[in-house]
Amino acid sequence: MRVAELELIRAIEVRAGTLFHAVGKSDIAEHPVPAAEELARFVRSEMSWVAVGDDDAPVGFVLVDVVDGLAHVEQVSIDPPYARRGIGSALIDHVGSWAAGRGMEALTLTTFRDVPWNGPYYARLGFKELGDAERGPELTELMADEARHGLDPAERVAMRREVAGDRPAARLEA
């Protein structure tokens, strides 16, 4: 991902966010997307990747942090016209390979438990739900911060996937 692409990335996030209207989460759909400067932090730290279409324009992206020494998937968004083509799973696999190359044993993320393209989707990708006692201190604090920002803890879940077997995906750019 390049700083020059940040407005395109923000636009993808807006379009992907509109899907939350369909599951009764209009507050999420209407939540402002992060500012370009906030996204630039991921670019500068080299923990962001985009999937590109045939015209080399971004069609999806992933942002990653390190939480409790593991690669934490902060955000994955796919432009709705490109959904259901394996782009999200390719991005996740790429992050897994990146994490394995840095000696990290797993990926983590937090997501909505019952939204079809959230919890159930990540479970299909091999993520397992973490109980309270299985979360590290940083992940626990991250979830507490989500609750302070209005996300219902009963609707949220922390998940983990081991990195063994992940492999890089084609057409991704750092």
Rank of each mutant, 00 (worst) to 15 (best):
G136H: 06
V76F: 02
L142A: 15
R148F: 03
H94F: 09
G53Y: 06
H31G: 06
A106C: 12
G24S: 04
L107D: 02
I28D: 00
P80H: 04
G131K: 03
I78L: 06
T140P: 03
E5W: 15
G53S: 10
G17P: 11
F112N: 01
G136V: 05
V52G: 07
E162D: 14
W117E: 01
G96I: 03
G119Q: 01
A29M: 03
G69N: 07
L125M: 14
L63N: 12
M1L: 12
E5K: 05
G136Q: 02
V52A: 12
R171Q: 12
L139C: 05
F61Y: 14
V52S: 08
G96Y: 02
E13T: 09
R10A: 15
V163T: 14
F42A: 04
V52M: 09
A106N: 09
S45R: 14
T140I: 01
M47F: 05
V33C: 09
G69I: 08
L151E: 03
G126N: 01
R41D: 11
L172C: 15
A51T: 12
A147G: 04
L125T: 05
E105H: 05
I28H: 00
A170V: 13
D56T: 13
P168A: 06
V23H: 06
P153L: 02
L109D: 09
S89Q: 13
V64T: 15
Q75L: 12
I92Y: 05
M47Q: 15
V3M: 08
P168C: 04
D132E: 11
I87G: 09
E141F: 05
E141L: 08
L8F: 09
P32R: 03
D56Y: 07
R44H: 15
M47S: 14
L70Y: 08
V115N: 01
D55K: 08
W98I: 09
V52T: 15
